[in-house]
Simulated assay, not measured.
Amino acid sequence: MRKTLLILIILFSFELYSQEIIKFSDAEFEFCLTKKCGETDCEITKIEVLKNGILTQTIKPSKNYFSKTFPNDQLFAIEDMNFDGKTDFRLMEFLPAGPNVPFLFWIFNPTNELFKKKQNTKK
């Protein structure tokens, strides 16, 4: 009886979570996002950038969170953010109560061929 009780206590003491890999791509890059979920919220913990199937960059995004029920296809967007003709991307930072959704941005640097996080500027 004690052994069974101990096993049950150990099993219920672990935090339940799940992990998923979400993939997005365009003509040049593939982005593999690692999504980790707790009981109600999720977070993107890692973004791997592949070019021609080869890993070129691993990005650890700053804090971001969203509901478990939020659709994956609305978390991430591949767009030319600075109108230079190069691929850039953005990740939803969190889902606010209002209509203005904040994003984390990465801009492609053609000099070193890596994505650089664009810092939000507040005035």
Rank of each mutant, 00 (worst) to 15 (best):
K86G: 00
P61W: 05
F70M: 08
Q74R: 07
F12G: 08
T4Y: 10
E28G: 01
F105E: 15
C42I: 02
I10D: 13
K68M: 01
I54F: 08
I59E: 06
N72H: 11
T40W: 14
S67L: 08
Q119R: 06
K63P: 07
N72W: 00
T87N: 04
E79V: 10
E93F: 02
L55T: 06
N109S: 09
A97K: 01
I7G: 04
Q74H: 09
D41W: 12
A27K: 00
K116L: 06
F14K: 00
M1G: 11
F103W: 15
I9S: 11
K86V: 03
F31S: 03
P61K: 01
S13W: 06
T69Y: 14
A97R: 02
S25E: 15
L33W: 14
E113H: 02
F76E: 10
I54S: 14
F29C: 09
P71T: 07
N64W: 11
K122Q: 15
Q119F: 05
P71H: 05
F24A: 04
T40C: 05
N109R: 09
P71V: 02
T69M: 10
G38V: 13
F94W: 15
R2A: 05
T34L: 13
L114P: 00
T58V: 13
K68E: 08
F108D: 08
N64S: 02
L75M: 03
K23C: 06
L33V: 02
F89K: 05
K63V: 14
R2D: 10
F70N: 05
K23D: 15
N52Y: 08
I22F: 05
N52P: 08
L33A: 07
S18F: 12
S67F: 11
N52S: 15
L50C: 08
I22G: 01
T40D: 12
T56K: 10
T58E: 14
K60D: 14
T40I: 12
K3Y: 14
L95F: 09
P99R: 00
Q57T: 04
